[in-house]
Amino acid sequence: MVDSNKKEEIGMSFMVKTVTRLTAVVILLFGIYIVLHGHISPGGGFAGGLIIALSFVQVMIAFGKDIALRKLSEAKAAVLESVGGLLFLTIAALGFLGGHFLINFFASKGRPFTLFSAGTIPFYNIAIAIKVAVGLFSIFIVLVILKRAKKEE
């Protein structure tokens, strides 16, 4: 790239950006797949959430901080993280309907190896995934911002 356009200077080289454009969405989808299949295969909310966060981190590394923050700003990330936590807590507290905290009150007994028979477990997975993905991403943002603030001084 011999382009003197200022916008192109932010972030990494042309190759990296192109590859990122191709792979970021795939990684995101893979993360979602892992989350949704958490109850029948290895993985689940935590691992899937990590993969989702990594797709955002990849965008951030390739295109620079500002473009990634336009997709998911810092304040929004903080709110979303709490939403994830509250969602988990609410589902767990709904377990009182079945008599106990955290009980799987939805399905009496699921069939093994089928996707839609796990009662509340997928919802727990989704809540954890939101929390982990946003939490990891915001840790990354905070570290980047800390370093940036130091440079400007």
Binding site: V142, L143, L146, K150, E153
Partner: peptide, 13 residues
């Protein structure tokens, strides 16, 4: 680890 790294950055400041 995240907390430690953040504090290390601040300490370097």
């Amino acid at each position: 680890l995240a907390l430690l790294v953040a504090i290390a950055i601040k300490i370097f400041d």
